[in-house]
């Protein structure tokens, strides 16, 4: 029982990070029906931006979080503006290749500058608490708390604000949104900014939790979050969060009973299995194709 509770905390921690990244994939897919393959690398850069920042000025955690989210938001907007927007009406495959290309450029630039994995310095006093035999650290509380907090803010933005309304409308019919006088391009840019900021936050949190940062993180972790978004039903925000926590739990359980080399096999098998029975993911709806 104690053991299970302990594993549940680990699963929550991993799931929260996956969820933050998965939301970015899902938001962009929602507005443009496009997989932003560079998103995993934006996540990776979140961790590197943090390293860079604290190498220049030793800032406290909260400030680092805000700066990293701001920097990745700008990056996300630039990618949208200069790489994706010119191809908005181009064949689907061009957009996919461009996204993959952006990701590879970011990854290899990072690899060029920092060929080796780097340790993430401590940003917090990490105290370990004991509750009847279950341990939880300040770091875990912060990771889960910040992630859940950001998800609540995002949920509010999407469901209650004009921006969120416009975002949901673009997801269902972009051409008509413009006809109403809504600046669709701005809404799409903000969507990218928000998704990238969440990815950046996840990068920072991941770097703190598993304190090694490398250029490959965008693929090893970022693509896992993409799997989570697809499991939940890509384009659906709650699905992304559900898929992420499910994947986090499955991975933690796998490692608890099998050698850790089985972790990715089980994760990707779960994806295939769920898609066989629910081709649109757990909460996804079949796309309505318009002429």
């Amino acid at each position: 029982m104690k053991y299970l509770a302990q594993q549940a905390i680990n699963a929550l921690q991993l799931g929260s990070i996956y969820a933050l990244i998965a939301l970015g994939y899902s938001m962009v897919y929602g507005v443009l029906t496009m997989i932003n393959f560079a998103h995993g690398d934006v996540f990776m850069l979140g961790a590197f931006f943090c390293l860079l920042l604290i190498a220049i000025v030793p800032v406290p955690f909260w400030l680092a979080l805000i700066v990293v989210m701001g920097a990745t938001a700008v990056l996300g907007t630039l990618i949208e503006r200069f790489a994706y927007r010119p191809l908005r009406n181009a064949p689907r495959v061009s957009a996919i290749i461009t996204a993959l290309g952006c990701g590879l450029v970011i990854q290899n630039t990072t690899l060029g500058i920092s060929p080796y994995a780097r340790p993430m310095p401590h940003l917090l006093d990490n105290v370990t608490y004991q509750f009847s035999g279950i341990t939880i650290t300040t770091l875990q509380i912060i990771i889960i708390g910040v992630s859940v907090g950001l998800m609540i803010v995002l949920d509010f933005l999407i469901r209650k604000t004009s921006f969120g309304m416009a975002m949901r409308a673009i997801a269902s019919d972009r051409a008509t949104v413009s006809l109403l006088g809504v600046p669709a391009n701005q809404v799409i840019a903000v969507t990218f900014a928000l998704g990238a900021a969440l990815g950046g936050a996840a990068g920072l949190l991941y770097g703190m939790a598993y304190p090694v940062v490398s250029a490959a993180m965008g693929i090893t972790v970022g693509w896992k979050a993409f799997v989570a978004a697809v499991i939940g039903g890509i384009g659906n925000m709650r699905g992304a969060v559900l898929g992420a926590f499910l994947l986090g739990a499955v991975e933690v359980m796998t490692v608890a009973v099998l050698p850790s080399t089985y972790r990715d096999l089980i994760a990707y098998s779960l994806l295939l299995l769920i898609l066989i029975f629910k081709p649109h993911g757990l909460l996804g709806k079949p796309a309505l194709h318009k002429a």
Partner: peptide, 19 residues
Amino acid sequence: RGIFANLSIEENLRLGAWT
């Protein structure tokens, strides 16, 4: 018509009032 099926009726109208 270009109705946003997944938005409420009032949300559709609020989008019309954007400008």
